[in-house]
Simulated assay, not measured.
Amino acid sequence: MTETTKQYRLTLVRSVAGRLKNHQACVRGLGLRRMNHSVIVPGTPENCGMINKVSYLLCVEEL
């Protein structure tokens, strides 16, 4: 990983209850466990795809 790799702070601001199973899996795959839980993830193409899919559930900040 290079020093110029973007990182994102993700916070789960909406519940995953009643959402599509693949959206729940994306949230779990990003490392988020519960409401208002925050994680820092690298800006890889895989992570960016999951962030885009469930962006309506997240607060995303670029670091």
Rank of each mutant, 00 (worst) to 15 (best):
G29T: 01
G18S: 15
T11Q: 13
T11P: 07
E3F: 14
E62A: 14
V27N: 04
V39Q: 09
C59I: 02
K21V: 11
Y56M: 09
G31A: 14
L20H: 14
R9K: 15
Y8V: 10
K21T: 13
G43T: 11
N36V: 01
V60R: 05
G29H: 04
N52Y: 08
K21P: 06
R19S: 13
C59M: 03
M35E: 02
T5H: 07
V41L: 04
M1R: 15
L10E: 01
M1G: 15
T11H: 10
S38P: 03
G31N: 05
V54R: 04
E61W: 02
R19L: 14
C26A: 15
L57T: 00
Y8A: 07
V13M: 12
A25P: 01
G43M: 07
L58W: 01
G43C: 13
T2Q: 13
M35P: 00
S15Y: 02
V27M: 09
T44Y: 11
R28P: 05
V41P: 00
S38G: 05
E61Q: 04
S38V: 02
M35R: 03
N22D: 15
E61H: 09
L63P: 01
G29S: 12
H23F: 10
R34P: 03
L30F: 11
V54F: 09
G43F: 09
A17F: 12
P42T: 07
R34N: 08
L30G: 10
T11N: 12
A25W: 04
L32E: 05
L63W: 03
M35A: 00
C48R: 14
Y56D: 13
C48D: 09
V27P: 02
H37F: 04
G49Y: 12
T4H: 05
V13H: 04
N52G: 12
H37S: 01
R14S: 10
G18L: 05
E61S: 06
Y56T: 11
E46M: 13
L57P: 00
L10R: 02
R19D: 08
L57M: 06
N22A: 10
R28Q: 13
R34H: 10
S55N: 15
C59V: 02
E3H: 11
K6I: 10
L32N: 00
R9L: 11
E62L: 11
E61P: 01
S55K: 14
C48H: 03
Y56N: 07
V27H: 02
Y56L: 05
L63R: 06
T44E: 12
E46K: 11
M50F: 11
E46Y: 15
L63Y: 08
G49H: 05
C48P: 02
M1P: 09
A25R: 07
I51Q: 10
V27W: 03
L58A: 01
T11E: 14
K21Y: 10
R9Y: 05
V27C: 03
V54Y: 03
M35Y: 00
V13K: 15
T11K: 14
V60N: 04
N36S: 12
L58P: 00
E62T: 12
L63Q: 10
N52H: 13
C59N: 11
G43Y: 10
N52M: 09
H23K: 08
K21R: 12
A17M: 12
S15A: 08
E46T: 15
V16K: 06
E3K: 07
M50W: 06
L57E: 01
S38D: 09
R33C: 06
R19F: 07
K21N: 07
